[in-house]
Design a protein around this nucleic acid. Structure first.
Lengths: 172, 172
DNA sequence: CGGAGATACTTAACATGTTAAGTGAATGCG
DNA sequence: CGCATTCACTTAACATGTTAAGTATCTCCG
């Protein structure tokens, strides 16, 4: 299909090593990405067996501890963007795992809650999920885990409201 | 700000609070996700101005320090799955930011390298990128940052080869 | 030499991330 | 009251994540 002689008489050595930067693999974003992936890799198989994606599970968990929430609030809790949440809620509702009803006082808002089926599904997933979490805690060390999460929280805090500098002086 | 009449004459009470689990917002995956997002939020605007996504930038950076790499190796370095990488390389090649040529010894392999234009683009992005990284380091603290990355690496290590238990006894 | 199996990608298909635009419902103000 | 704004979502459009297939090569063994 794609032959791609690409560059006849190329010969020229590629232009690498021209832009010095920190070792890429040790950047903070990469460290966080790899660590998170290492963790999620443990959970995905179990969730998959129950027909749930990581995000769907996040939503169910967020709903499990409350009666009902507005979509916007749920987005903040489950750390999902509105559009993603909107799609996922549509699907979860179709699977009868959640319920939605328009707020009486404000027709724009819709209150979301987990259904009985949703609760049942959670109950079937939670044990395995907790066991995996326990295994991770045990391997890494409970104390270190707490420290790590403390540091992650501090990192968040120290960056909160950074890049917001443009908002006040928004142009265009 | 948040009114939240929450539950006026609701009627049928949704089935919540039935499945006890750790506080969702404090789970390790969520901590990692939020921390990473807090960090990336700082970089995205700058990358966007240069017409690059986070992943495209990862690829260029990975390519910047070497002459050429096979796609599979690049996938490991940039921490991308094959299919994602395949699509992105197609686009970067169309934009003349990278070059591809089939390996002589093995026609299956294709060697990828950054182009002169790619290097030029990197040179225009790197300063801002480094400045942002410096600001983050300064805010969070260089020492703490090093500690955090150390812990993240250890976390990865402690989970390496966990969930691999099924592989040996693979069925089906 | 030849074909089964392994490799290195690429495509396909579906779900989510991300930004922009659209829609219907509240609000505020003249 | 009337209407421009703001709100709370939802749709749309495009890029990536993720798993499963598909393709072309290459290897190795009989």
């Amino acid at each position: 299909m794609s032959k791609r002689p690409a560059d006849p008489a190329n010969g020229s050595a590629p232009a690498a090593r021209q832009v010095p930067m920190r070792d890429f693999s040790r950047s903070l974003p990469m460290s966080l990405l790899r660590a998170r992936e290492a963790v999620m890799r443990q959970f995905r198989p179990s969730l998959r067996e129950h027909g749930l994606t990581e995000q769907q599970w996040r939503i169910l968990r967020a709903l499990a501890s409350i009666e009902a929430v507005e979509v916007t609030e749920l987005a903040r809790t489950a750390f999902l963007l509105g559009p993603s949440l909107s799609r996922i809620l549509r699907d979860l509702e179709a699977r009868n795992l959640i319920e939605r009803k328009t707020a009486k006082a404000d027709q724009r808002r819709s209150m979301v809650s987990i259904s009985k089926e949703g609760v049942k599904l959670m109950a079937s997933v939670a044990p395995t999920s907790e066991a995996i979490y326990a295994e991770i805690t045990s391997r890494f060390g409970a104390r270190k885990l707490a420290e790590l999460q403390e540091m992650l929280g501090e990192l968040e805090q120290s960056l909160a409201g950074l890049g917001a500098g443009n908002e006040a002086s928004a142009e265009e």
